[in-house]
Design a protein around this nucleic acid. Sequence first.
RNA 1: GCGGCUAUGGUGUAACGGCAGCACACCGGGUUGUGGACCCGUGAGUCGCAGUUCGAAACUGCGUAGCCGCCCCA
Length: 455
Amino acid sequence: MAGYQPPRGTRDLLPEEAAGFDGLLAVVEARALRYGYPRIVTPVIEDRSVFIKTTGESSDIVGKEMFDVSLGGEGDLVLRPEATPAVARAFLDAGLHKTPRPQRFFAYEPMFRGQRPQKLRFRQFWQWDLECFGAEEAAVDVEIVEFTHGFLTEVGLTGYEIRINTIGDAKCRAKVRESLTAYFTPLRERLSPASQRRVDTNVLRVLDSKEAQDRAVVEGAPKILDLLCDEDRAHFSALQDGLTTLGIPFRVVPTLVRGLDYYTRTVVEFHLTDPEFEGIAVAGGGRYDGLFATMGAEDMPGTGIAGGMDVLYYALRKENVKVAEEPKPDVYIVSAQADDVVNRMQLAAGLRAKGFTVAIDYSTRALDKQLETAVKHGAKVAVIAGTPEARGGYVIVRDLQKKEQRKTRLAAVVVEVGRHVTPKAIPTLWQPPTDPDDKEPGAAGEGPYLGDPRD
RNA sequence: GCGGCUAUGGUGUAACGGCAGCACACCGGGUUGUGGACCCGUGAGUCGCAGUUCGAAACUGCGUAGCCGCCCCA
């Protein structure tokens, strides 16, 4: 065992896993773009105060899981534990609250929490995240749930359940708190120590307690829904109606509360149902109409949802969904000639320019060893140079799976390799859009207009 | 942060308190230069630091990390 290990709760993503995360990111980011949520990137470090009033001091995230990385005299810095306050901070800092509303953002970042690692719970983990600022309609709440449901379905996850609840807006919640505090205070003695504390700090979270002794008391507690004002109830029904209309299955869980202070009205969690992952959320979010006021900005509603990439990746693996293959070169260049390194590179360059993935064996080992290595690295095709047969403008293109080969002129290598493996698209920078009118029959560059054969 | 369990080559595993071994993988070589087989061979380990003991991989303490539970969440 090596002397060095990754720090507690962190891990290395080896190529296959890294490719899996990249694949999931590509899917969710493309979906976000389709919904009008462009990506925003915020720093890994934030001032601690960004999370104190927003996420809330009574939350576990702020109360005991913040990752402190302060430098002396440079403020109180933490590794960001979650996205929403950071994105809101960036939004305000750039003055985007003075731009047309609503504003939508997608984020994908590593998050950090100083917690004891557990199944699918790490100190560094990755979240994708959606935020919609400036819209109070319940339709946006529907949108983020529908988005998440669509995404999870798209990547092939089946074992999850959508749970929703409402906890009322800031005004009504004061009444809710009052009623709950009034109910729990005389029963204090019967609650667990943690819940006794919650009666003072965040009484709503008593409802969420999993402790058996608390649940008995919670059962008799007043129901949040009964305590809310009409506007909150209407908002909640609009959410439910929207989901029902879209055919999205969900369950109303009256005790679902979520541990972050900024939530108002809608709270939602996507829970895994596989017995091995029971109780683990693959995504969660809700509405936070009071967030901006809390940050000292002008009041503005907001809705967001975030999902754990790690959780999703392992849940998919558990469901036997192949997320990604370890990236391997399709083509391996080998040579029996010791002094032709430049040749091998030029050979590779020609293939790479067409999008083939090409690795080169630079060694002078025996040809059979080079081929063996090529096979072990997963190459499908070997381009063999420098043998008596393959000289003077010729190489051999060998299909390593079919064990067939053909002597090929250098000029035709790209074509010959293309008969065995498919090149990958080469990414490019932004290109000017082509005018759709140019595609009209009869336009420049197109053939003359031909009548519809059905005419 | 609290509690329980665990830690032997890269991986998987053996060894009563008494010589740390096996398999696979990896690396080199060979079968007289086209591959996964086969043959030969090399390298590589008791998580770290103390302690008990004639002697510790084994027992004890502390540390570190992993897994599980609690808290809570992605």
